[in-house]
């Protein structure tokens, strides 16, 4: 089943597009990596897919009947979040709000879902800790857990390992791979090409021309060294 289908999309702020001619599909259980230089429009593409920005032209559809609000998103951390007084549990369960239409409070199902996604991302023991006192790696796992709480079908991850040390990075990749193996489709922006291509299936290469290829094709083209 095709979860999200992007056709001849042009993205950008204002009139001039940052990137154009983008077409790809994300199937159920897929793993797509988005690579490209700084400023090539990776984050912009992801925000457009999430409906945070309007596309300049082209279209994004959900052929499989998934709703646009059923995507889990892990974005780049904002200034506000750094000293925000919130417990891990409060943040994770806030991912369930897209299932709470018309309900002001969380029900048992929401609490179970939050517990399950904390379990899957290995942060159950951090449940009552304060977000601002966690390490960078732990914070990223909390945000991943929230994304997972919002969707068990498709996760969009914007540089989930930026600023993490090698151990935390490996742990993050292990969790993401595990989630993907269990059937969650993943779209991930990354600069860490070598490690992420080991777990990805297809690569979207952003730049003057936007190209979609398999990992094997990408490696062949770049001389087998990733970059």
């Amino acid at each position: 089943m095709t979860l999200i289908s992007v056709r001849d999309l042009a993205i950008g702020y204002g009139q001039t597009p940052v990137a154009s001619g983008i077409s790809f599909d994300v199937e159920e259980g897929d793993f797509l990596c988005i690579v490209g230089e700084n400023g090539s429009g990776k984050t912009t593409l992801m925000k457009t897919m999430l409906g945070l920005m309007e596309p300049l032209s082209g279209g994004i559809t959900f052929p499989g009947g998934m709703k646009g609000s059923e995507i889990g998103y892990l974005g780049q951390q904002t200034q506000i979040q750094k000293d925000f007084p919130a417990s891990v549990y409060e943040i994770v369960i806030s991912g369930r709000l897209n299932k709470c239409a018309g309900r002001p409070f969380y029900g048992k199902e929401d609490k179970d879902a939050a517990a399950r996604s904390m379990e899957l991302t290995g942060i159950t023991d951090l449940r009552n800790r304060c977000y601002r006192n966690l390490s960078g790696g732990q914070q990223q796992r909390v945000l991943l857990s929230r994304a997972l709480c919002a969707s068990s079908k498709l996760l969009l991850l914007d540089e989930p390992v930026s600023g993490l040390d090698p151990d935390a990075t490996a742990e993050m990749y292990r969790i993401v791979k595990e989630l993907n193996d269990s059937g969650v489709a993943v779209v991930m922006i990354t600069h860490d090409v070598d490690a992420s291509l080991k777990i990805a299936r297809t690569v979207l290469c952003m730049g003057d021309v936007v190209r979609l290829m398999t990992v094997a094709e990408y490696l062949q083209q770049t001389g087998g060294q990733g970059k």
């Binding site: 925000k47 999430l50 409906g51 945070l52 709703k67 646009g68 609000s69 995507i71 998103y73 974005g75 904002t78 506000i80 979040q81 925000f84 919130a86 943040i91 806030s94 991912g95 709000l97 897209n98 239409a101 929230r146 919002a150």
Partner: peptide, 13 residues
């Protein structure tokens, strides 16, 4: 949710 992360809140509807 909106206070902690308005982008995420918007993305989830």
């Amino acid at each position: 949710s909106v206070t902690f992360d308005s982008d995420f809140a918007k993305a989830t509807g």
